[in-house]
Design a protein around this nucleic acid. Sequence first.
DNA 1: CGACTTATTGATGCACTTCAAGCGACGTGG
DNA 2: CCACGTCGCTTGAAGTGCATCAATAAGTCG
Lengths: 254, 254
Amino acid sequence: MHHALIKKLESFESLSDDDRSALDALVPKVRQVGARVDLIREGEVPENVHLVLDGFACRYKVLADGQRQIMAYFLPGDFCDLNVFILDQMDHSIGTISACQIVDIPRAAIDEITASHPRVTRAFWWCALVDEAILREWLVNLGAREANQRIAHIMCEILMRLDAVGRVRDNSYQFPFTQTDIADTMGLSNVHVNRTLRELRELGLVTLKHRVLTILDVDRLKAYCGFNANYLHLKNTRWVERRRATWLGRTEGA
Amino acid sequence: MHHALIKKLESFESLSDDDRSALDALVPKVRQVGARVDLIREGEVPENVHLVLDGFACRYKVLADGQRQIMAYFLPGDFCDLNVFILDQMDHSIGTISACQIVDIPRAAIDEITASHPRVTRAFWWCALVDEAILREWLVNLGAREANQRIAHIMCEILMRLDAVGRVRDNSYQFPFTQTDIADTMGLSNVHVNRTLRELRELGLVTLKHRVLTILDVDRLKAYCGFNANYLHLKNTRWVERRRATWLGRTEGA
DNA sequence: CGACTTATTGATGCACTTCAAGCGACGTGG
DNA sequence: CCACGTCGCTTGAAGTGCATCAATAAGTCG
C-alpha cells in the first residue's frame, strides 16, 4: 500500500510503477509531530517543502489584534508549501491541527524527481493549481455564503479530498478541528459555529461525535450548500456537475 | 518607455536589456476590449494567457442564485491566468471592469521566453506566487476584518500595485469599480459599501470622485486597516514592516 | 484528582442586509 | 430637441445574522 501523496496524485494523473517508486523514495524519513505545533512561522525563511502523510495541518495568519485567520487545510497527501517555499520569507505560518506524520523534502529532491518523471511533474503542477482553486472557492465561501452553508460546504470539500486519499469510510471521517478552528476558518465566532453545527445536526445532515464527522446524506448536504466539486479538478468526477457562468452580459465577439 | 508588465517584473527582479526586448516581443498584438466584457467564461477550455497592459479586469464566479463573487483584480501588467490556463476547463470567469488593452499570449510563446531567459522565468514565478499571496490576503480580509477596514485595505493594496507600474500620481489613481463591484468583491451589499465609502470620506482618509480615488493620508489609511505590504513581496519595500506570527503555542523543537 | 480546554446555552447588542424611494448622469430614439 | 429608460449613487427605515459577554457543563490530560 502506497502513501497518501501517491494516492492523491493518482486522482489527477496515471502513474507508472517507476513514478510510484520515485515518489516512495521521496519520503525516506517520516517525522512525528504533535498537535498544535508550528511547522514554520511568518517571517522565517523557508527551506524544505513540508508534506503531510497523515493528520491535519493548516495555513494561517495572525493579525495585529490577535485574530487568527486559517487560509487552508492540509490533509494526508497534501504539500503545505510546494510553491511558497521559493519566497524570500514566509508571509504566513503553517501549523498542525492534529498529530501528524510530516516529511521534510529538500528543494533539490523535488527538482530531481521532476527532471526525470514528467507525469509526476504534471501531477505536482496540478496539485498547486488545485490548491489555488480551493483557495478561490474558500473566498467564495466567505464572501457569498452564510454560516450554515459555509460550514456545510467545507464538510463536503473535506469529504471529497479525504476520499481521494482513502480516508473515508461510510461517509465518515476524522474531524479533529475544534469549533474555534472552524470559526477562525470561516470568519465566524466559535459560539455561532456551535449553533450552526447544532442546526446541521438537527436538520439530519450530519453527526459529529468524538472528532468523527458522519455525513448522513451526501447529496442532501451538497444541495444544501450548493456544493459543486468542479474546482477540485478530480479525475473521476471531473465536470459531472458542470455549470456555466454568464454574469457579465456580453462575450468578447458580441 | 516599456509596457506595464516589464515595469511590474522589475519590481521583483532586475532585468537585462535582452530580457526587456524579449518581453517586448511577447506583446506584438494589443487588443482593445470594452468595459464589462468577458475574456473567458467558466466551463470554457483555456487556450491563451491573457495579459492586461492597461485597464482593470477581474476574476469572478457566479453562484446558482445569481450572486457574483469577485476573486481577483487584474491591473496593468498583470497576467490573468498564467497558471490557470493549464487546467482542463475554467472553474471561473474573467472579465473586464473598464476598457482594457489585452494581449493574448499563446502558451508556446511563454515556454519559449522562459526557456532562454532565466530571470524572466524567475519573475514569472514570482508573479504567480504573489498572486496567490494576494488571494490569501483577500481571504484574511473577508474573514477577519469589518467592512470599513476591508475597503480601506483594498484601496491600500491597489495603491501599492498600481504604484509598481507607475499608475499613481500624488496618491491618486483611476478607480473604475462601481460600488456593486466593490460589494461583490468584499462580500457586502452595495448599500453598505456606499455608507462605508462615505465614512472613509468623512474620516478624511480618501476622496472618490469621477472614478478617481485619492488617498489623503497614506500612513493613516494603512494604520486604519492594519495594512502590511509584506504579502506583495515587492523588492523595495520588502519586509520593512515585518511582523511575526506566533499563534499556536509551541515551536517544532520545543 | 484538579487544571484546563472545549462545548453548550442564554441574553443583549450591533454590523450589515433588504426593501424602497429619489436623484443625477448618460445614451437612445422619436 | 426633449422624452424616456437605464444605471449608478444616495439615503431612510426596518429586519436579521452574527458577535459579544457571561455562565455552566462536559471532556481531556498530566
